[in-house]
Design a protein around this nucleic acid. Structure first.
Lengths: 76, 76
DNA sequence: GTGTGACTTCTAGTCCGTA
DNA sequence: ATACGGACTAGAAGTCACA
């Protein structure tokens, strides 16, 4: 078969990138987002760099803070 | 307006329920799934009961073990 | 085959700084 | 406003014995 590859980017990285790009689209700072999600400034930065293995509760907190559905943050 | 409610079920619970129902559709035991995902039997059970705040890496491991995209497990 | 309590190890998540 | 480090505490990861 032809189209097999795809070699998925790890979910953690997809989440990281989507989080950052959506946050920026909203002209929100990491600090501002952290506040909205009741998380810490530095932690959000770590997550956006893909350095943290974030838990589902906090993923949801961030999604809600951004006002987007969680699956949107897992988009390729 | 009429249809506003929706009162989202927490992502953790949605994940729990979807995981269980998809696993069962595949006639797979918690044990079998745990093996495929390189996780422990009891841990998978805990997750299916929504008792664990699972991290993104393990969510992905379970999704891959089931052969479904991660977002499928977050479906309402 | 699954649920549950208890337990230890490891990392998620906080908070302080400095650049 | 963000990155990054160190040091710390809360809580996730991972395992077991028993129902």
């Amino acid at each position: 078969m032809a189209t097999k590859g795809a070699k998925h980017i790890p979910a953690r990285l997809r989440f990281a990138r989507n989080l950052r790009s959506i946050r920026k689209e909203m002209n929100l700072s990491q600090e501002g987002l952290a506040d909205l999600a009741n998380l810490h400034r530095t932690y959000v930065g770590d997550v956006e760099r893909g350095e943290r293995n974030i838990s589902i509760d906090n993923m949801e907190a961030l999604a809600e803070a951004l006002g987007v559905p969680l699956w949107e943050l897992l988009r390729m």
